[in-house]
């Protein structure tokens, strides 16, 4: 799934279907169905359990995590380009060629900033624009990714880095105008690392 989503994102680079200036800022067809974006997150393990697979030595870890991050995405009309989220997730991790492979199901709450300014009248009757005007949203998401413990680089580091492809939706209002596919770059810390 991840290579497929990454390929979709690659094809969704600006490639206007209509050469007229009016539509030149619109992105490609793929981006209309799936907005490409980026999320930066810091993740903390809250609880975990580990077991070994029956016929291999692979260790499977199931964990609940909490994370906080920012995500932005491409929108043809720049409506709501930035979302700050705090998320609870269920992550399942295994090993694959020396890397952690993982799947994650998350549910987050966030603040979606309206794309473009949000204008409103002040008490004195002046029309003022607020670049941070927006709304609270609930954002379920699904992710697949891989990572590696940073102790491979420096033995004292207990955290791990990860890269995830994630599919997000926002509720009750899909403020992005379509599901968002983000590439997430993040740092995860185990419970013992606190």
């Amino acid at each position: 799934m991840l290579p497929l989503l990454l390929t979709a994102t690659a094809f969704s680079a600006p490639n206007p279907p209509d050469p007229s200036p009016k539509y030149s800022l619109d992105t490609s067809y793929v981006a209309q169905a799936l907005r490409p974006g980026l999320r930066i997150a810091a993740e903390q393990q809250l609880w975990s359990s580990a077991r070994e697979r029956k016929f291999t030595d692979e260790q499977l870890i199931r964990e609940f995590t909490g994370s906080a991050g920012f995500m932005g995405w491409w929108h043809p009309h720049n409506q709501t380009p930035l979302l700050a989220t705090a998320e609870l997730g269920f992550r399942r991790t295994g090993t694959f060629w020396g890397f952690q492979k993982e799947a994650l199901l998350g549910i987050g709450m966030g603040y979606a900033i309206n794309g473009g300014r949000t204008y409103s009248y002040t008490d004195s009757g002046e029309l003022k624009g607020n670049p941070l005007g927006g709304r609270g949203v609930i954002a379920p998401s699904l992710g697949l990714g891989f990572g590696q413990e940073l102790s491979h680089i420096k033995p004292k580091l207990t955290a791990s880095w990860h890269v995830r492809g994630r599919l997000h939706y926002q509720w009750p209002y899909n403020v992005a105008g379509a599901p968002v596919f983000t590439v997430e770059l993040g740092i995860s810390r185990p419970w013992s690392g606190l």
Binding site: K22, L25, G72, N78, P81, Y119
Partner: peptide
């Protein structure tokens, strides 16, 4: 990415394509 997005949202009343929210 953020800068590009914010620049695209910059005020320009003379722009033929101006997108904003009214609260």
């Amino acid at each position: 990415f953020i800068l590009t997005t914010l620049l695209a949202c910059a005020d320009n009343p003379a722009d033929l394509r101006d997108y904003w929210y009214f609260r």
